[in-house]
């Protein structure tokens, strides 16, 4: 039930923000389309912790700034490599184990790896994640497991 309400709030919020017109007609169209979307989503059985992860919102507040900072640092590293005359890349494949208990946590972890330039998740099988890294340094960053621990902490708090 709380996922249904959370999804409804997100949908109506999105409508109001993008429309930003407050006439009765437009608001009622918005409400109607949100209800239809909710009904379809419920019929598809996607209204659950995975489809509307509202319990993650509070803990994301601490994770996202850290992730943004990591992304910024990784961006500068990759940019330096790209602009370097000799392009000192040493691409390699590494495999890491994700310690998250649920698929949602693993998805967040794998997507965080991909979002960080220099490392891309190219395969996931169970809790085994295959990562393509542009340099040894980027590979070491993933192997150190700090991101993995932080994402695991997300899941345990919710």
């Amino acid at each position: 039930m709380k996922y249904l309400i959370g999804l409804m709030i997100a949908l109506t919020g999105t409508w109001v923000l993008w429309s930003w017109h407050f006439t009765t007609a437009l608001l009622s169209y918005g409400l109607a389309s949100c209800v239809v979307v909710l009904l379809i989503a419920r019929r598809m059985r996607v209204v659950d912790r995975e489809g509307a992860p509202i319990d993650l919102l509070p803990v994301l507040v601490t994770y996202l700034p850290w992730l943004f900072w990591e992304i910024a640092k990784a961006n500068v590293d990759v940019a330096r490599i790209v602009l370097h005359p000799r392009m000192p890349i040493s691409p390699r494949l590494i495999e890491v184990r994700a310690t998250q208990k649920h698929d949602l946590g693993r998805v967040i972890y794998a997507n965080s790896i991909t979002l960080t330039p220099g490392t891309v998740t190219i395969d996931t099988e169970g809790d085994l994640i295959t990562v393509h890294a542009l340099t040894q340094g980027a590979a070491d960053g993933v192997l150190s497991g700090e991101m993995d621990r932080r994402v695991s902490r997300l899941g345990s708090q919710s």
């Binding site: 992304i71 910024a72 961006n75 990759v78 940019a79 790209v82 602009l83 392009m87 890349i89 691409p91 991909t114 979002l115 960080t116 330039p117 220099g118 490392t119 891309v120 190219i122 393509h132 542009l134």
Partner: peptide, 28 residues
């Protein structure tokens, strides 16, 4: 940074490394 990503897309040697170049433009 968008421009650097574009340069990376051209300069990097194979498909998997080019993904990282495109990643720069998409994130930062």
């Amino acid at each position: 940074f968008a421009l650097i990503g574009g340069i990376g897309l051209i300069r990097l040697p194979d498909f998997y490394t080019r993904i990282h170049g495109a990643g720069i433009t998409d994130t930062l």
